[in-house]
Design a binder for these strands. Structure first.
Lengths: 211, 211, 211, 211
DNA sequence: GATGAATGAGCTTTCATTCAT
DNA sequence: TATGAATGAAAGCTCATTCAT
């Protein structure tokens, strides 16, 4: 069982371990990353590693939490700016931010994200989902006309899951068949057009009803 | 004399191994599935297993190929029917087919697909992409007006990657926040609306140009 | 989980492992005896050891069974001879047999027995208890007068537990304060005198009652 | 100035460590009891523990000494009373005292004693032996007729070793085949009858000789 | 070809012991 | 003196791979 060392130094060590774990997983994948590697990269002994985490699984858990926290921290401060923008532009911006985030530190997060779908880290993803739903909600309040769009929940689900996966996959590919600009433009237009079309249909249907 | 029989038996054994591997991976995940388990399920010895595959990795490779081949074999015969249909309906049909495919044999493929994003099976995905692009192309030839839609490559890319992932994830979830019908309707509308909107924009722009 | 190899060779290997375990435990005690040591002594690899036993505990279990089986096998053929003899002589004989048994193979069993009280091998001891009780019963049938002795169960309990322990301890001591002859004579007389006294009391009491 | 207090505190800490060790061993057995546990239970740091004991082994040694000292301290004050009593009664009393001693503090000593036969604590047992021999000697001086009993040393050896072991084993059993009363009565009678029989034989033999 | 017992490197995890603070 | 984080040797156990039969 992991002892609970105090405060300052301990926090730094926990940090170092989690960072080392990201590096090890990026290099070898989660199955092949060993506790020894992680300890070595973190510059500590295996014994110390187990002072801070009760087992390998716990390290992976901390990685997920960290990844999610960093993702949220990256998007959070940009929310006000995003909700003010036009939807297509907001999505494009987010995709660009997301790409930069994944490519930081020699693509550390990107390399891990490739494997992340294996780890049961989906349970940790909830804060990200909540944040994105929050953005959608705020955006809708500022652009009330979009409230008429049907099936918002499904669209958000598709966009979050499919969008994230498509981006991660694209950035991981050696020779992608399309450019990142085409991809992000496509995602942005797919959502944008969908909303426009829904609004057109809504207007038309209300017109029909009133006539 | 008996030259074929030997090859036939070989093929049958290879088949049995790959099927056993699917079962083992579905049960324990790719990292925890052992060669012993696979051999046992296949009803052969570990020694024989290595007669047909040079190592565990090779089995995973064969699984990817098989998965892709089966996917293609499932869609292929329905292509004529699909390209004849309205786009939204065609997509809905494909999603239903895909779901049935993943859920066959006690969700054998679904359970494997959850982990599949780890294995470097993406490189094998190309035949599926080609098939879907082929469907799109054929569809466009039968519905020439859609030829004006821009960015077809990107849309297909997004749809294939995002769509597949969203479906696999959705089917794997215990308590999905949306129903499969909402998901498939969403995916179908997202593409359908996108195309409609593109066509509307195209018409409008050609109108502008001609005036 | 321990595979179950077949027949001949496997039986020999299992034997070798158990014997190696006795040697290792005799040398280092059960807590300090490692699977590596056992495998080395048995002349096999650690991997093989786990082909035959699912874990260290299982090896200890097999040791207990083996020890008990050997003990029974040593006494069993002498039962007819023992039950025919006078009680004191029978006990002396058994103690001499038991000593020889413990001192076989460079005191292999003796060295292990010292630690045996730790391992929960008491549950395996039942066959030995049953055998000794059987001897007592047979003896009583041949010497019907002893049937009047009270508290046979308690005496047997004390003799088995206390006697075995006293002998093991004595043989383990560097400088025992008494000789083995004194010890065995003492045990034999303790039981013999007890029975004689009980019979004397019984006779006297029946005499009193009849008068 | 403050010279004693330091020693006093030292002594108190050593005491706390030994008591903690008893608790840890009772809970987990000697092999599984860790220095960390012992330090935690003692309310000190591992570092301090090594200030007072050079290693784990030394703690076990102190436990043995303490156990023996406590045993002696328990019997010592009752010696005058015991030597005055009839032998059978004296033995019964001692067994009852011993049981109470083992069952004190939620069976702390009993739980440890089960494992004690492993630790080389036998070398420390000598003071107990000396005490019991002393009791026997004093008893004989008060009951001079018993001086004719042969083999006193062997009887004492058997009684101490066999008796202690039988009692510890009995108290540890879930479903003992005999009651504690039967056991203690048996032990007391075994010794009592032995002595009576010896005296009878001695009288008879002296009679024979004188005639 | 088929077998499966044998291998042993290598994994996760524990814990007695040390030593800078 | 007291602390407890750090250490790392060493334990139990697994499993991909080989090879004698």
């Amino acid at each position: 069982m992991a002892r609970k060392p105090r405060q300052a130094r301990s926090k730094a060590t926990v940090n170092a371990i989690v960072e080392a774990a990201f590096i090890a997983v990026a290099q070898h994948g989660p199955a092949a990353a060993t506790t020894r590697q992680i300890a070595d990269i973190a510059g500590i002994s295996v014994g110390s590693l187990y002072e801070y985490f009760s087992n390998k699984e716990a390290i992976f858990g901390a990685m997920s939490e960290r990844f999610v926290a960093d993702t949220v921290a990256m998007i959070q401060p940009r929310v006000p700016e995003l909700v003010r923008k036009d939807m297509r532009e907001a999505i494009l911006d987010m995709l660009v931010y997301f790409r930069a985030f994944l490519q930081e530190n020699d693509e550390l997060y990107l390399k891990c994200a490739r494997h992340a779908f294996t780890m049961d880290f989906e349970e940790y993803l909830e804060p990200v989902q909540r944040l994105l739903l929050d953005i959608v909600t705020q955006h809708m309040m500022r652009h009330p006309e979009t409230a008429r769009v049907r099936n918002i929940a499904a669209m958000t689900y598709i966009y979050i899951n499919g969008g994230i996966f498509a981006v991660v996959r694209h950035l991981s590919e050696q020779n992608p068949s399309i450019t990142f600009e085409e991809l992000s433009q496509g995602l942005s237009d797919m959502v944008g057009h969908y909303v426009d079309q829904e609004l057109a249909l809504a207007k038309q249907s209300s017109h029909n009803r009133s006539s």
